[in-house]
């Protein structure tokens, strides 16, 4: 590979990239690969404890020693969390973007800003806000559904807690999908709509035959981002549905942190099993890789057809 000629000092150029490359290799790339290595050890988080290579024992434990039904439940939670977040988030973000892209809507900039706000406020603020809203004894939502004679323990209800967590995640991240869609919408030439209007297309037809196909690449980006993001996110689960043995809201990413750093382990006083955590992280990595490839394949095919 030949570099383009420049009269800048070569050494200065290399000196300039050195910190970034060094930092990246030492702090990101190296550790990433080391995760694979550590997954074959019994290393703990306590310094001074000897550790050794134990072959594939961690993977064996993942598949055979850990209760298979619980492992399946964690996988199921991961899939539910990932699919629901991805599809609901995009299914809502698309109409919102279309509506808020409409010049006839007064104050659309304000509405956009409001929907995007939680992205900026972050996971702690979102979690604490919704913990307050979903307070089972006297929170507003509890009082609202009380009017209809319903009641719920929300995050404390083992069967439905995951769905409340998913709701929070979507509330927090939807603004992100929305603004990406908006950017995509603004890239659609208005001539297309004008031409359509002359041909007498209705609003629905315009959406179906112009907006949607033109926006598809943007939606594909959105879907990929949401898939990867939701598969590796665990913060919202950690801060809303906490509790030591609560496997009902545990996803793969949460499980990694649970074993490796005792996060969400509650009063459980086991030591940090980072070797096993690394093995679970590797399983998650494979999972994400497969999902990304499949989604890439599917969205590409859709693009071809369109």
């Amino acid at each position: 590979m030949q570099a383009t000629k420049t009269s800048f000092n070569k050494w200065a150029l290399y000196l300039g990239i050195l910190p970034a490359v060094l930092f990246y290799v030492v702090m990101n790339l190296g550790p990433s690969i080391a995760t694979f290595v550590l997954s074959f050890t019994d290393i703990t988080g306590t310094p001074g404890v000897p550790w050794k290579f134990i072959g594939i024992a961690n993977y064996k434990e993942f598949f055979f020693i850990q209760n298979p039904r619980d492992t399946m439940m964690v996988l199921k939670n991961t899939v539910i969390f990932c699919l629901l977040v991805t599809f609901v988030q995009n299914a809502i973000a698309l109409p919102i973007a279309v509506v808020l892209n409409n010049k006839f809507i007064k104050g659309r900039n304000f509405y956009r800003a409001v929907v995007f706000l939680p992205v900026v406020l972050g996971v702690m603020v979102t979690s604490l806000t919704w913990l307050l809203m979903f307070n089972p004894t006297d929170g507003p939502v509890s009082q609202l559904i009380g009017i209809f004679g319903l009641s719920s323990n929300f995050f404390a209800d083992k069967e439905t807690a995951l769905y409340y967590v998913i709701f929070c995640q979507i509330w927090m991240a939807m603004g992100y999908s929305m603004v990406i869609n908006l950017a995509g919408l603004q890239g659609i030439p208005t001539e297309l709509y004008e031409a359509g209007e002359i041909d007498g297309t209705t609003g629905n037809q315009a959406f179906r035959y112009i907006t949607f196909p033109m926006l598809w690449p943007t939606i594909a980006v959105n879907i990929t981002l949401a898939l990867i993001g939701s598969l590796s996110s665990f913060q919202i689960i950690l801060f809303t549905a906490s509790g030591g043995l609560n496997i009902f809201t545990q996803t793969m990413a949460m499980r990694v942190m649970y074993f490796a750093f005792n996060l969400n382990a509650g009063m459980n006083t086991f030591s940090m099993r980072q070797g096993f955590g690394a093995a679970v992280a590797m399983m998650l990595f494979v999972f994400i890789l497969i999902v990304t490839l499949v989604s890439h394949y599917v969205t590409n095919r859709r693009e071809m057809e369109a």
Binding site: G45, T46, S242, G244, F261, N262, L263, A265, G266, M267, N268, T269, S271, M272
Partner: peptide
């Protein structure tokens, strides 16, 4: 108390 094991560690 729930976070104590982490602090200790």
């Amino acid at each position: 108390a729930n976070d104590y094991p982490t602090l200790q560690q």
